[in-house]
Amino acid sequence: MTAPLARRVAAEAVGTAGLVTVVVGSGIQAGRLSADAGVQLLANSLATALGLGVLIALLGPVSGAHFNPVVSAASWFTGRRTGDGLTVRELAGYVPAQIAGAVGGAVLADAMFAEPLVAWSGHDRSAGHLWLAEAVATAGLVLLVLGLGRTGRGSMAPAAVGSFIGAAYWFTSSTAFANPAVTVGRAFTDTFAGIAPASVGPFVAAQLGGAALGLALTAALFGGRTARTAQAPAAAHGDVELTAAAG
C-alpha cells in the first residue's frame, strides 16, 4: 500500500459504510417489494454480493478493501514477522474506521428509505446454531482471502469474495455476517437486516473464533506464507492487501 495512512483509513470507512448501506438498503427494499422471505433473502444476497465485489475492485488499490476487522487482524497477524501485513498503528486506524463506517452506512440506508435514523434492532439472533454458522462463515472468508494471496490469485478477490458471501447467505443459518463491524452497524437499524444489540456480542465472539480457525486452516492447507500474503486478495490487486468484507 503506497497511499498515506489517512487516505487508507478513509477508504476503509467509506467502503464499510457502502457495504452496510447495500446490505441494509437492499433488505428494506426487498421487504417492501415482496412479502416472501425467500425472495427477500435472494434480493438481499444478490445486492450484497454484487455491491461487495464492486467496492473491493474500487477501493482495493487504496486500502486493501478489508472493510472487516477480522480481515485486518489477519493481515497484521500473518505479516507481523515479515512486515508485509498491517502494522499495529495501521490496524488501530482501520478497525475504528470500519466500525464508524458500518454505523454510518446503516443510518444512511435508513435515511434513504425514510426509516428512523437510529432504531435498535429487535431481531434476536441468539442461538447456538447461529453462532456456529458465524464461525463457519468467518473461517471460510479468512481462508479464502489468505488462500488467494498465497496462491497468487489476489486479482480474483472481487468476484471470489462477493460470490462466497452471496453463497454463504444461503448455506449458513445466520446469513453470514462474518464481520464484527458490520454486525455492530446492523444493530442500529430495526429492519430486515438488523440484529438485536444483545445478540451482537456472541456473534462477534463466534466471528473471532472463526477467524482463528481460518488462520489455522490456511497454515495447514497452504503451508508457510509467501511475500505479500497478508495483502491477500486485493493485494493482488492492490490486497486488495487482504481484501474483504462480508456482510
Rank of each mutant, 00 (worst) to 15 (best):
V24A: 10
S26Q: 04
I28K: 06
I28D: 02
Q29A: 10
Q29K: 01
G31H: 00
S34E: 00
A35C: 00
D36K: 03
D36Q: 05
A37T: 13
A37K: 13
G38Y: 06
V39N: 05
L41T: 14
L42C: 02
A43C: 08
S45N: 04
S45L: 08
A47L: 06
T48E: 09
A49G: 10
L50Y: 05
L50Q: 02
L50P: 01
L52S: 11
V54E: 09
V54N: 08
V54L: 15
L55Y: 05
I56T: 03
A57P: 03
L58F: 10
G60R: 02
P61Y: 07
S63K: 03
N68Q: 05
N68I: 00
P69A: 06
P69R: 09
V70L: 14
V70Y: 12
V70M: 15
V71M: 15
A74C: 11
W76F: 15
F77N: 11
F77I: 15
T82N: 08
G83Q: 08
D84V: 09
D84I: 09
G85Q: 11
L86N: 13
L86M: 09
T87W: 01
V88E: 01
V88I: 07
V88K: 01
R89V: 14
E90T: 10
L91T: 07
A92R: 07
G93A: 01
V95A: 03
V95R: 02
P96H: 00
Q98E: 13
Q98A: 06
I99D: 13
A100W: 00
A100G: 15
A102P: 02
A102E: 06
A102N: 08
V103M: 11
G105A: 13
G105N: 14
A106H: 07
V107G: 02
L108S: 05
A109R: 09
D110M: 13
D110E: 15
A111Q: 11
M112Y: 12
F113G: 01
A114V: 04
E115R: 15
L117D: 02
L117Y: 05
A119C: 04
S121F: 04
G122P: 06
G122C: 03
H123S: 09
H123W: 01
H123V: 08
R125M: 11
G128F: 12
G128E: 03
G128L: 11
G128V: 10
W131K: 03
W131D: 02
L132E: 03
L132G: 07
V136N: 11
V136R: 12
V136W: 12
T138V: 04
T138L: 13
T138F: 14
T138H: 13
T138Y: 14
T138C: 13
A139Q: 11
L141N: 11
L141H: 11
L141M: 14
L141A: 14
L141R: 08
L146N: 13
L146Y: 14
G147Y: 06
G147Q: 07
L148E: 08
R150N: 12
G152P: 14
G152H: 13
R153Q: 15
G154H: 04
G154Q: 06
S155Q: 14
S155I: 15
M156D: 07
A157F: 07
A157M: 10
A157K: 05
A157Q: 08
A159C: 05
A159E: 02
A160E: 03
V161N: 13
G162L: 09
S163E: 00
I165W: 12
